[in-house]
Amino acid sequence: MEVLRLHNLQKSFGSVRALKSASFTLNEGEVVALLGDNGAGKSTLIKAISGVFPVDRGDIYVRGLKVSIRSTRGAMDLGIETIHQDTSLAPDLSIARNLFLGREPVNLKWLGVFAPLDLAKLRDAAAALLKRVGISKKLDADALVSTLSGGERQSIAISRAMQFAAKVIILDEPTNNLGVEETHGVLRFVKEMRAAGHSVLLITHNIHHVFQVADRIIVMRRGEIVAEQTVADTDLLTVESIITGADMSALLKETRAK
């Protein structure tokens, strides 16, 4: 079943056409990898979906309904959670406070931003969540995020997205700066998300990771989607050559010129 559909998204920054045209569909319980070299338009695309800035043209459909995403909050309310490289958590806050940042459980709701946090609920919900994702034994919900390793932080950010029953989880380079074991942990998490019915859009540089977890691969180059294939129908070398294709031909021209 279709969860997210993009139709002809376009975005320019001044005279730079960062996103020329992007259309694709993400289905329920599917892991789609978005690949491409630096400057291919991956970041622009996910920022548009996650509400960082509006697109110039094109439509976004969530579960078949046309939506307009005007803010990060708006994207979250539609069930689209984005986990950015290392900017997702506040290191000086506890795990529990990070998990509920922006959606804090409170008492006396009518007090607005001055409403008291429901600390008991905050701690219990955090502990329950950590337990569900299988890391409760090792992590204290009151521990500061600054005391955690990169992999632990990544799993906290991912569990936060899962907790709010996000339909679509966008992972932006989730394995950057992680050790081998931590990377495996994150990839395992991605598989668990899929098993739980979430749809995942995985942005990464590492093609090997893609082949371990993704169902489908989308390759972007110069602001356009240039290839879309199921993992079963392709192989590592083919994908690699699609990604670097532009550079190869440029290189070829250069050598010929000489």
Partner: peptide
């Protein structure tokens, strides 16, 4: 003391100072 340590606003204030982008990404 109430606002900074016990209210929703305090959580936001600390989060903004700790990692502004993370706070903004969470809709703060």
């Amino acid at each position: 003391i109430y606002v900074l340590h016990y209210a929703k606003l305090g959580n936001w204030i600390s989060a903004i100072g700790s990692n502004r982008n993370a706070a903004v990404a969470r809709g703060v």
